[in-house]
């Protein structure tokens, strides 16, 4: 039917290398999620603070993160910051770009979750003598994180998929980068990338499953 001979054994021989790349991918995704969560919490606090400058800053961050492509954000970190004399390595640029994106989306998730928590709870906490920060920390935040857990899981999967964009700024240690480097040597594009796709699929499914298990354990009463 077609005159192309598949050489799967070449791809399978490179499997250990690609799995090492998958570890780097997972590492970047986890790091970017950790940074993203911390920044998103800060942005949520900014929005709740009632300070117009802080609120504007948080809103601007969220809107830019959600209305421009992730690839653009990574380009910005890699090429754009050069104007200020900041030259990031592909790894750092990728991490910064994805963390920026994660923070924006997670902050929006938190905002949605906050809507589900009645104002009266904060007021009850305040009238018990808590400071605003204490009321947020001990009453609102635990509930907010619980509601936002599943959307955050989706964001984690997104973060894993986004790490593949690193190859466009010259990243060559993550899964997509390793695959591209192998492809440049052998030109077995389909075989290598099909294997990479399978690995990405397995990682994404494993993360989803783990998050679901964690959710049932953490959130039972």
């Amino acid at each position: 039917m077609f005159s192309y001979n598949f050489h799967w054994n070449q791809a399978f021989k490179a499997l250990p290398q690609m799995l090492e790349g998958a570890l780097v991918t997972l590492q970047i995704a986890l790091l970017s999620m950790a940074i993203g969560l911390a920044v998103a919490l800060a942005l949520t606090l900014f929005r709740l603070s009632g300070n117009r400058i802080l609120n504007g800053f948080a809103t601007a961050w969220v809107e830019v993160a959600r209305n421009t492509p992730a690839l653009f954000q990574i380009y910005m970190a890699h090429f754009g910051l050069g104007n200020f004399g900041i030259h990031l390595s592909p790894y750092t640029a990728l991490l910064v770009g994805i963390a920026f994106n994660n923070a924006g989306y997670l902050a929006e998730n938190f905002r949605g979750a906050l809507k589900a928590i009645p104002d009266t709870q904060t007021r009850a906490g305040r009238s018990l003598g808590m400071t605003p920060l204490q009321a947020f920390r001990y009453i609102v935040m635990p509930q907010m994180l619980r509601i936002a857990f599943l959307p955050a899981t989706n964001q984690m999967v997104w973060a894993i998929l986004m790490t593949s964009l690193g190859v466009t700024v010259g990243m060559n240690t993550d899964l997509a980068g390793v695959t591209q480097a192998l492809n440049a040597v052998s030109f077995r594009t389909f075989e290598f990338f099909a294997l990479a796709a399978v690995i990405y699929y397995v990682i994404a499914k494993a993360v989803t499953l783990a998050a679901r298990l964690a959710a049932t354990r953490m959130f039972r009463y």
Binding site: V157, L161, M162, T163, S164, L165, V167, T168, A176, T179, F193, A196, A197, Y200, Y201, A204, K205
Partner: peptide
């Protein structure tokens, strides 16, 4: 939905 678009 589980494989990066770039790879697709």
């Amino acid at each position: 939905r589980s494989v990066p678009l770039l790879i697709q």
